[in-house]
Design a protein around this nucleic acid. Sequence first.
DNA 1: TCATTAAATTTCT
DNA 2: AGAAATTTAATGA
Length: 228
Amino acid sequence: MDGEQLHHLARINLFADLDPDTLRHLDEVTPMSEVPRGATIAAPEDSRNILYLLKRGRVRLFKMTPDGREITLAVLGDGNVFGATDSLGLGSPEMYAQALQSSLVCAMRERDVEALIRQSPSVGMRLIGLLGHRLRELESLVESLSHEEVADRVLRLLRQLVQDFEGREEAGFTAIDLPLTHEEIATMIGSTRETVSLTLSRLAQQGIVRTGRREVAVNRRELLRRLG
DNA sequence: TCATTAAATTTCT
DNA sequence: AGAAATTTAATGA
């Protein structure tokens, strides 16, 4: 399965073809809440047996190093899931989840998820698709982190983000539909705010990216040329 | 090449 | 005004 298909797979509703009765039951066991930008949805001290369903919004998953620095492990969009570290073994207990923008989140007990998967295997299949996509992005990140210089790490990250969060197209530049600071970008590629800032402005001079406060757009043609 | 430190500057609330 | 985000510069590993 190629990246484009996986991309679309990740966007479809986890519960797409469930029958009305099941959906009604799900509604009862999955309280929904609106989470404001910047708020923490889950922290290590929270109960670990909940699967969060991101109905709409953007959520960043990160860990904290002993010296207090953040390491971002994933940014999730509409239709994705996170949490649930006990029986599903999804993610680690040390993970924080923070809303990058106002988001709509459902909480489902892990045991209800288990029961649902047994009853509707298609839900399980979609979950695997979602997780497979995340795994692949992590693999590519590790690869990049281990031997590339910062400029290339930034570029690979942006290529990934523009695929997952494709925004408006304007004058050859495709926006990344995600509010990100240079600081946050740094935590995604193991660099620093200052270096990311300098790197982005150099890439802007080269016509590969266009940046603004909390926003980045990329010229896909130039990006491809540079990354090969 | 890039993290670190320090500081200035811009932009948002 | 004050906070947050970004930029610039000097230094050393």
